[in-house]
Design a protein around this nucleic acid. Structure first.
Lengths: 215, 215
DNA sequence: GTCTTGCGTCTCACATTATGAGACGCTAAT
DNA sequence: ATTAGCGTCTCATAATGTGAGACGCAAGAC
């Protein structure tokens, strides 16, 4: 993930620390290595984050993400319920198209899979919940990069991964901004080099239904 | 919630902002009112948190917690799985005692309910998941306040709420520190003024089982 | 139509904080 | 006994974050 410079150095550094710990508990020295921050600074910020519950000490020498993040995460408007309410629609899209379907939200310069319905065919794309992908490739990335999103669709062929094609559509919020992106993906063998012709309308239809159901 | 002073002012202020937004989206002016921070400072920190995904703008004038918190929350070691693994044990404790059972984790100067099994009796205590309670009252709070926790139990009668009694026991991690607290609570009519005699052993037994199952 | 109020946003001089070099104590390895 | 590497802490200083106040905009009052 690219380093974000927000203009508030302490927040930038703190986020580096939290991001480093996403992979699992780390010692102070490992944190320093992964964040490239000064050791005293890392120590001081880690203690402060610990006091706020964003970090906690495990087995006396390592830091891990703290429960406060889980609690704040539960309070994010729509995050958990977005995943829950969207699931039946992704299931329906998977059934209608025969391909794997996913929902992505934007997270800085990446997109993250929030919910998924896997195709039952033996050859299929698998994108686990929590997977983070670039915005720079793939039809879902292209949707997030649009300045003025519409309720059309975008297709891509072999952009993110060779042999894979996908179609995506924006889930717009009430202000016409992209809240999430719904996608269908699978092998080029089935989706062809024109996946939009096959499934674009189905994806766009489901995106509108999802938008309505999460309002 | 008491204001925490960690020694890093920007982190302290940022956490005030995130905590204020836990209740739902707020305008800048509302944020300023609830955090008692300077408006320019609040604005600047809110923009920085937005860039990191911890906040997001909703309907052009309000801030809300951002998806990055949900994602980081999913990465907290054990948080979601703690709730999941603990559930059958809370159900068993509820069945064995006939009273509502809860699991709490510490969050700064409060405790938060992570999982619950409600009694089926018509008179029962209800503590929804996510509920935040003080450490200063109740048997679970007393456990969190202990300096050197053991695998005994603590009972309280009409401390947090009149008419309610409870028994709690610490779930200890491998370092002998309190990872969580398991509790049983209900009306004094059933639990008597000596709830520990009735259910203390059952709660302590389950706490040990839970500790083993989340290692 | 004009004026006022309150909002979000931005600037920048300055006060205050955060930084990080280096010291310290501890433990494990040699 | 010595060395290396860890976590922790201090404090002089540099750099950042603060916040008063200006600005533009929109809505409400008159």
């Amino acid at each position: 993930m690219k380093t974000i410079l927000s203009g508030v150095g302490v927040i930038d550094k703190s986020m580096l620390i939290l991001a480093a710990l996403e992979q699992g508990p780390l010692s102070l020295t490992q944190l320093v290595e992964q964040t490239d921050l000064n050791r005293a600074t890392t120590h001081r910020l880690a203690l402060a984050l610990d006091q706020h519950g964003l970090l906690r000490r495990v087995d006396t020498t390592r830091f891990a993400l703290g429960f406060r993040l889980w609690i704040l995460g539960q309070a994010v408007p729509g995050a958990a319920s977005l995943a829950t309410r969207v699931q039946p629609h992704l299931d329906r899209l998977r059934d209608r198209t025969g391909e794997s379907a996913q929902l992505y939200v934007r997270d800085g310069n990446e997109r993250v899979c929030l919910a998924t319905a896997e195709s039952e065919q033996s050859l299929r794309t698998i994108v686990p919940v929590g997977t983070r992908l670039t915005l720079e490739r793939g039809s879902a990335g292209a949707i997030f990069m649009q300045d003025n999103p519409s309720s059309g669709w975008v297709a891509s062929v072999a952009e993110r991964e060779s042999g894979v094609a996908s179609v995506s559509s924006a889930v717009l919020d009430q202000n016409g901004e992209t809240l999430a992106v719904v996608s269908v993906s699978g092998p080029i063998e089935r989706l062809s080099t024109d996946p939009g012709a096959l499934h674009g309308q189905a994806v766009a239809d489901i995106a509108i239904v999802i938008a309505a159901s999460v309002s």
